[in-house]
Amino acid sequence: MSMQGLAVANETGVERKTLVEVEGLRRVFDLSKPWLNRMIEREGRVFLTAVDGVDFSIRQGETYALVGESGSGKSTIAKMAVGLLPPSAGSIAIDGADVWGKKSPEAERRMRRKIQMIFQDPFASLNPRWRVGSIIAEPIKAFGLIDDPLDRAARVGELLSLVGLDPRDGQKFPHEFSGGQRQRIAIARALASEPNFIVCDEPTSALDVSVQAQVLNLLRDLQERLGLTYLFISHNLAVVRHVATRVGVLYLGRLVEEAPARELFAAPQHPYTKMLLEAVPDIEMEGKDRQSIAGEIPNPITPPAGCHFHPRCPVRRPECDVETPPPHRVGDATVRCHLFGSAS
């Protein structure tokens, strides 16, 4: 893959308008024990900063991937983006409307209709007591899109075919389907309210490889056909590489690197991104040894001072222990690392 090829691909990309705008997003969880326990055990309050000042934006029709390991805050961001969890600070705007801002019930409904989510576990995301048809019809009913029961049933059948299932499958219960088929049902439900922004929270990590490919291809196909915009949450870099237009790498609640996908995979900048890429198993068997990475992710309740990554960083500097690195522009990437501070 030549660098020229990359540049051309970037240039030819049509300039699209920004659909999702996330600014200064922050979420703190209060993990303190009840008041009485704190008094008796003489413990202070305990806070966990799951998301710490995250900014990014997603353009219409693109896929923005958030990558991170456990404790990185990626799922918390997903929940805030769809309106399931209020942020402690910062804002998320979708098509100009603040997800968490005060608005009329009508505007609220209009906004919710445009945001949907696909969950990780297809075995938990479908109500086991409901028929598949009712599950998919629920958003249509809730948003009052189609009132006639017959038309609604027809629409459900249409959605089922859209995700590659038989329209007659609506009569069945979720337990009659395999994991991959259930994820298709979940996708059909997400599409039922005709959204333009879908948050995919690890949509394939519970699936087998051969099924994972089906679901990833389906998501991509739907994006092209319906012009969807995705926020794609994953810990699997190889998967992200196949779906993302832009990638943000999270470490303990902070966005350490953000870049167009091609650039990030061709030339990772942040030491943590490099480390993650090296940790991907070598399926091609080129004989490269997986780089053994020192240490584990620290407890997110008491993250290291300065750059959170400094205790594991192979190229740390004295200032890394004390100062939180500001974002630096490196080519098309934004990197939060002191290494690039002196260069700029």
Partner: peptide
């Protein structure tokens, strides 16, 4: 199975090979 695994090489814009159906 082998061609369905997303990898860090190859063209990311190409659809992944998939096995139809499920086990």
């Amino acid at each position: 199975l082998m061609s369905a695994i997303p990898s860090l090489t190859g063209d990311p814009d190409e659809a992944l090979a998939q096995i139809p159906g499920s086990m």
